[in-house]
Design a protein around this nucleic acid. Structure first.
Lengths: 223, 223
DNA sequence: TTGACAGCTTACTTACTAGTAAGTTAATAT
DNA sequence: ATATTAACTTACTAGTAAGTAAGCTGTCAA
């Protein structure tokens, strides 16, 4: 407990630097910002770690004790930021939502083929993974143990993720417009299930089957 | 605790009935069988319930207290049959394996098309489900929290399930034999991921997307 | 009839869970 | 200088988890 980290100083310096560039320098404003940043930073740290642990072990299996030990603070400190476990859980779902939105906006700008965008999506999924799986998948598995608000959030996340895939896939679709909608929706479910499945198999079997699966998916998309 | 169930009598009667049909009737043999059946029955009850709860809430989330309350016995009674939670977990994985084997043998006999067999497989998956998901999928999600022996069992189950799907899919494959193996394997991963994914979405979104997904899969298989 | 055993129960321990209450500290606002 | 506040800590509660030890009961073999 005596070995506390020194992020306080380094964050403050970084922020000072940014403020000085072309802005009027106001020391009190700066200090105020730093204090906000600090608070947000610790909250962010907690949510980040919780998200990682949900990928690895699931919502049910993580405890405030895990979190506090890994962050070098007390359990009560985490309760200060997130009074109930449910509050933290909701914050994590919101973080996942933000990540999805940032991906969506990054991809709507760019002019890539459908295959490239799918590839991009899977790469992004794997980047965060390590020994974990898709966090939405993890929360879906714990669904019946989740508090009601989280159930709702997970449902919304699932729908949002589907919407993103439908957005991607609609571009590449060349059939009649009538049948298109349902066809694309089915394809979106298929693609998502496969990506999430690939992550599960990677961890369970220690084998990266995603390239193989991606091939199959591209066959479907091209048709 | 005073409201104990009356399965003892009804089981005994059922068994008596079966024994009498064309068999020499030996009372002591019967009683001995009943006692064996009883023991196996309770163990079977526990494993059945544990399997169901793993589908619904996952291995981590189930407790001996849940199990004992739902069976109308004490926690200690379950510890008598399965000393450690790991022992029960292993028993559940073995049950899942038996189920898979019985399906495999039922399907190797019959002369169905690949599409029909796939359909059969998914129907079987859904039959047990209720508010649950694929039990292998559930165990995969809890993978990092499982004791080592269970990790191994889940790995073997996953491989066995894949082998079954490869068996089914190999029949319907008409390409070069050289590329066939890897192609079929990739297809097996894809199909399994989709079925498991469909169950997840069914529970999370309350929408049965399996028919849609199955359509997509058949497109892949037919190619 | 006796002894052994299966299949329990009651009563317990130890460890961990989420959550809370009250006090500490350092920075800031007035 | 003083009061207030954010962000903690220490120290606790109550509940639940797995697991154990010892005793009870009905069946059964000898």
């Amino acid at each position: 407990m005596q070995e506390r980290d020194k992020t306080k100083q380094s964050n403050a310096i970084a922020f000072t630097y940014k403020l000085r560039r072309g802005d009027k320098f106001d020391f009190y404003l700066l200090v105020s910002y730093i204090s906000i940043m600090e608070k947000e930073n610790r909250k962010t740290q907690i949510v980040d770690l919780a998200l990682q642990l949900i990928r690895e072990k699931g919502y049910v299996a993580i405890s405030y004790d895990d979190l506090s030990k890994q962050l070098g603070v007390t359990k009560a400190s985490i309760h200060y930021h997130f009074e109930k476990k449910e509050d933290l859980g909701v914050a994590v779902t919101e973080r996942i939502g933000q990540n999805l939105e940032s991906f969506l906006s990054s991809i709507t700008k760019s002019a890539m083929t459908v295959e490239e965008k799918l590839k991009q999506y899977t790469v992004r999924q794997i980047a965060f993974c390590g020994e974990g799986i898709c966090p939405i998948s993890s929360l879906q598995s714990d669904f019946l143990s989740l508090p009601d608000l989280m159930k709702q959030k997970v449902k919304e996340l699932s729908q949002f993720e589907l919407k993103i895939l439908i957005t991607i896939l609609t571009e590449g679709h060349n059939k009649d417009v009538d049948q298109a909608a349902e066809e694309v929706e089915a394809l979106a479910y298929t693609v998502l299930s496969c990506i999430k499945g690939a992550l599960q198999y990677k961890r369970t079997l220690g084998k990266d089957v995603l390239p193989q699966i991606l091939n199959q998916l591209n066959r479907l998309v091209q048709l």
